[in-house]
Structure formats: structure tokens, C-alpha cells
């Protein structure tokens, strides 16, 4: 079973105050810590689990700069057999370009299963996986929260809204965009990462993939980023915990709930 997992290094922004940079095209990133995209962490774990169960070969691929190799070392430490970084050079790719580049790379590697995360934590597009699949003509499923492989087929469940799952059967090769909670990603030790840093990471240059010019043009143009309008929002309650509790109780009563 050949499995390819597409992963991304993203800035960790939960519990962080974000500030826009001067260009207003992005947030200031110099103080941010980079981590593996949460969804991708589940995807790589799922790949390793499949490999551990059925045997196989896991390749982790990322599109990024040299500093982003950290995410690949993490994947290697988790048990990936091979890692490829696609050097993005000066490109600042949007989802469609990422998908174009990654699909060109993935095409050249044998694969039965391709996994991606449902979305990335930074731009929240949620389409990279399906775009790759469509470019390669592969069958795919987004938001997969359970995956069982047997005899060239995958039994999957797809998370829909309202607590409903769709159960489907997919013939491999296929691409699945993995949802959080599908497994419990393992801990990756520092020693493991150190060990992994001895393994070779293959580097491919995005500009050398022979992609047509329009594939390397963004389909969306960022005009500006802006902070959410301040005006909307909650009336803020003040005071210590005790007085907050009093106010909350009062509001709940006012809204017709008896306590």
C-alpha cells in the first residue's frame, strides 16, 4: 500500500493575538511559532496506522521553504518512510496553485491512497485535497472521519452536518481529506525528531515541474486583510467572578429561564 500524505507547516494562532503586517496582506508572523497543521497531524497518523496494519510505504509531501522541513521531520519521526519538500521559491501560492503543484508532484509517485487534512489552520480554504484529486482524476471524499482499508477498497464515513455521517465505499486509488478526531495522533519525541533529521529529505523545485503558466497564477487575489469590525459583539460584563455570576444569573432569569 503506497500512501502519500500532504502536510503543511502553519503558524500556531490559537490563543495568540494576531496583528496585521504593514502590507495588510497577511498577519505579522515573526513572533509566531510554527506547527504541523492540526488536520494534517491526524492525516499522517492515519497513514502510519494503515501502514502498521497492512504494511506499505508512507511519503510525506509539503510545499514550502526550507524552514518548513520541520514538519517533514516530524512526519518521518512518526514513521513516514520518505519525505519530499517542494521548494516554492518566490511563489505565494493560493489553494488552486498548491493543488496544481502538489498534484504534479504526486503524479510521479506511486500511490494507492493520498491523504490530506480537511483544511489548513491559516487560510481555511478546505479544498486543496479535492482539487488535487480532481486534477489527477482520482475519486475522493472530503471530511473523512473513519477509514478502513480492505481488498483495494476503502470503507469510509464522511462527516456531514447535524451529527450525521455518510457511509460510503470507495475503490482505490483515492484521495481522502481527513477530519480531526479520526484517531489520536501519537506523541513525537525530540529524540525522534533528531533521529529523523538524519534522514534525507528530497527537494523538488516547483518551477521545474513543467506546469503551464496559468497553473502558477493565483485564482484569487488578496486585496486586503482586516481585523473583524469592533462594533459588533457582546456587551461586556465587568467585575470579579462573584459579581459576574450575579449578572449572568440575572440575565438568564430575564430571558425567561427559571433557575
Amino acid at each position: 500500500m503506497n500512501i502519500i500524505v500532504c502536510v503543511k507547516n502553519v503558524p500556531f494562532t490559537q490563543e495568540v493575538d494576531l496583528v496585521l503586517d504593514a502590507s495588510k496582506q497577511d498577519v505579522k508572523k515573526d513572533n509566531l511559532v510554527y506547527v504541523i497543521n492540526e488536520w494534517d497531524n491526524y492525516a499522517i497518523e492515519e497513514a502510519i496506522r494503515i501502514k502498521e496494519e497492512t504494511g506499505g510505504h508512507v511519503t510525506a509531501v509539503t510545499l514550502g521553504k526550507e524552514a518548513d522541513e520541520e514538519v517533514l521531520r516530524r512526519c518521518l519521526a512518526m514513521g513516514a518512510d520518505e519525505a519530499i519538500r517542494v521548494e516554492r521559491g518566490d511563489l505565494n501560492p493560493d489553494a488552486s496553485m498548491i493543488a496544481a503543484i502538489l498534484s504534479a508532484v504526486v503524479k510521479t509517485i506511486p500511490h494507492d491512497i493520498i491523504l490530506t487534512g480537511v483544511q489548513s489552520d491559516d487560510l481555511n480554504n478546505g479544498i486543496t485535497g479535492s482539487l488535487i484529486a480532481e486534477r489527477l482524476g482520482l475519486v475522493h471524499a472530503a471530511v473523512v472521519n473513519s477509514l478502513k482499508i480492505s481488498e483495494g477498497k476503502a470503507q469510509i464515513s464522511i462527516e456531514l452536518e447535524g451529527g450525521q455521517d455518510e457511509m460510503s465505499q470507495v475503490t482505490l486509488p483515492a484521495l481522502f481529506a481527513i477530519q480531526t478526531g479520526i484517531n489520536e495522533p501519537r506523541y513525537v519525541s525530540i529524540m525522534g525528531i533528531r533521529k529523523a533529521s538524519k534522514k534525507e529529505i528530497k527537494v523538488i523545485d516547483a518551477s521545474g515541474l513543467g506546469l503551464p503558466g496559468e497553473d502558477l497564477q493565483p485564482s484569487l487575489i488578496m486585496e486586503e486583510m482586516f481585523m473583524p469590525p469592533e462594533t459588533e459583539g457582546a456587551e461586556m460584563l465587568q467585575g470579579d467572578a462573584g459579581s459576574l455570576a450575579d449578572q449572568i444569573i440575572r440575565i438568564i432569569r430575564e430571558k425567561g429561564v427559571s433557575l
Binding site: 512518526m78 489520536e184 495522533p185 501519537r186 506523541y187 513525537v188 519525541s189 529524540m191 525522534g192
Partner: peptide
């Protein structure tokens, strides 16, 4: 080092 049985919160 093995990783997969480390308690959740500890991870």
C-alpha cells in the same frame, strides 16, 4: 519514543 500510548494531556 514510541509515542502512541502517551496520555493525552501529557502530549
Amino acid at each position: 519514543e514510541e509515542g502512541s500510548r502517551v496520555p493525552n494531556l501529557l502530549t
